[in-house]
């Protein structure tokens, strides 16, 4: 086994994998949100942006492959750690009590798994066209793939929007613990900055969840059509 692979198997090495891949995925979540928010700038803005992404060609595939590897490393490492952590306490306490741990922290594996399930559905829904093949055939008047119409059609379905909103709330919880943990894990801990590190996760979680949720709400409210 290579030195790097061995390192990733150690407890602290695995923490670093979680932290670094988590931060990269956080970057993706921000980028994806900023792109999606173009829906508020109108059909041409969003479709033009989507078209530019498609035009990246080979680079787009590089980004996709890197994202996939990062995503699989994050999920794989998390599942392995989860199994080890459960094995570390074979006999549970009859009385469970906590002093400081947060709800987001205790449920991070569950929120992560539900987000994973959502991502699979989301890709089949919008990217691969597995659930709604007609979406990929939509064209706008300029002849570009009509991402805008796809979003509006998708979110006009209350059930689809509901699932999306729940998934984004889970993402908010996940980021709230995950982002704050990032700093401690990579060794960034200093009394002067700790209050900021502690706040940045929950704040980012709330902002990102609201950002994403604003889109289906706007569609359902008829503000975006």
């Amino acid at each position: 086994m290579s030195r790097f692979a061995r390192l990733c198997q150690t407890s602290i090495g695995a923490k670093q994998v979680m932290a670094v891949t988590g931060l990269l995925l956080f970057g993706f979540v921000i980028g994806h949100l900023l792109g999606n928010l173009l829906v508020f700038a109108g059909r041409d803005s969003l479709n033009g942006y989507a078209h530019k992404l498609r035009d990246l060609g080979a680079l787009l595939w590089v980004v996709r492959v890197v994202l996939l590897v990062v995503f699989l490393a994050h999920v794989g490492s998390a599942l392995r750690l989860w199994r080890l952590n459960r094995a570390a306490r074979p006999e549970p306490y009859a009385v469970e009590a906590h002093l400081v741990t947060t709800y987001a922290g205790r449920t991070i594996v569950m929120s992560g798994l539900l987000i994973l399930a959502y991502v699979v559905y989301h890709l089949m829904h919008f990217t691969l066209g597995a659930t709604n093949p007609e979406y990929l055939k939509l064209m706008d008047p300029k002849g570009l793939p009509d991402v805008y119409r796809m979003m509006v059609l998708g979110f006009s379905n209350a059930a689809v929007s509901g699932v999306y909103i729940v998934a984004m709330i889970l993402l908010g919880f996940h980021l709230s613990h995950g982002l704050t943990s990032f700093f401690q894990t990579v060794g960034l801990n200093h009394p002067a900055y700790n209050p900021c590190f502690k706040r940045v996760g929950p704040v980012a979680g709330v902002v990102i969840a609201i950002g994403y949720i604003s889109i289906p709400l706007a569609v359902l409210a008829g503000l975006v059509k």
Binding site: S11, I12, A87, T101
Partner: peptide, 17 residues
């Protein structure tokens, strides 16, 4: 850290308990 892992202790997820 190697010995800690061998002993079967779990992994930190920053609960701070």
């Amino acid at each position: 850290v190697h010995q800690m892992d061998l002993e079967g202790f779990g992994n930190c997820t920053n609960h701070t308990e």
